[in-house]
Amino acid sequence: MGDHSHGSPQESGTVAKAQDDSLDKIQDPGLPPHRARLTDTDPRAAKRAERQVAILFAISMIGTVLFFVGYFAVGHPESIAEIRLQNMLLGSGTAFAMLGIGVGIVHWARTLMPDHEIAESRHEVRTEEGRQEAEEIVNTIVDESGISRRPLIRNSLIGALALAPLPGIVILRDLDLTKASASEIVDRLRHTMWDKGVRLTRDPSGTPIKASDVQIGSAFHVIPDGLNETEDPLNEKAKAVVLLMRLNPEDLNVSPEREDWHHDGIVAYSKICTHVGCPVALYEQHTHHLLCPCHQSTFDLTQECEVIFGPAAHALPQLPITVDADGFLVAQSDFHEPVGPGYWERP
């Protein structure tokens, strides 16, 4: 039906194509002659194919039996090796069961079913008469409903339809199960569990850390004291995790307002990447680089964790720390800025 609607809808007949004069085209010789298969001409070959198909179906049956062997003979596995064995038996049993049927059927179709290509003509997706009839029907419907003659009804209906879905959106407000107000939703991103005097403890044991425990070159994964006793430990942990490292104090370039944020070269930084929130947990003790394994943002510990590579766009927040009377490391306060990735209300 190719050529009856030439050109774009706006400018008909403008399509450019080669060899519009079809006289000079090489002629279609028509479907090539059918070539007989061995199974079409040789009854023995056909018989052989028939047997092969049956063998394939038999293999499928053996596969199903193999599945049962794996299931019942291995039983409830006692070790990883047995699970592996069972998985292999169940899997290969299923594979044989399925492939036997599939390959058998296809082999049957390829060798024994007729392979004459048949041409079928296409129909127009849309006929002109059909279009006209449909148009008439639509016009009748519109006319009988009177919607175009009675604009008051139409417009008030549009208004009602526009308003009616709104409750469906509003009712989703309590998807946030915390009953937090809009400002609380934003505000809680600014606060973590850290506060003046909260001890730094080891993750996951929760035991406090003495300043003398931290030697140069070591890295401690830290959670705030009491985290495991909170109501939602994972929520608190997702914001409060900290990486504690000790450097030679001379290696640190400390800005004036952060002079007392470290204790004798022991520094604590948020472990939550400022890119999209993965834990920035890879510490290289000689280069003093912190690397995020998710998207490779790299932070320089000696430069107050400025970004030196990768997609993060701002430095990791530092947790001001000091030691308490017993020599344990404690926070001086919460972080001075929100931890983690940037968001609209962050500045």
Binding site: G100, G104, V106
Partner: peptide, 15 residues
């Protein structure tokens, strides 16, 4: 038949 083949291939990989 191809459905069974695809299933069989996936099963073999999973095994």
């Amino acid at each position: 038949g191809f459905f069974f083949i695809v299933f069989g291939v996936v099963a073999a990989i999973s095994a």
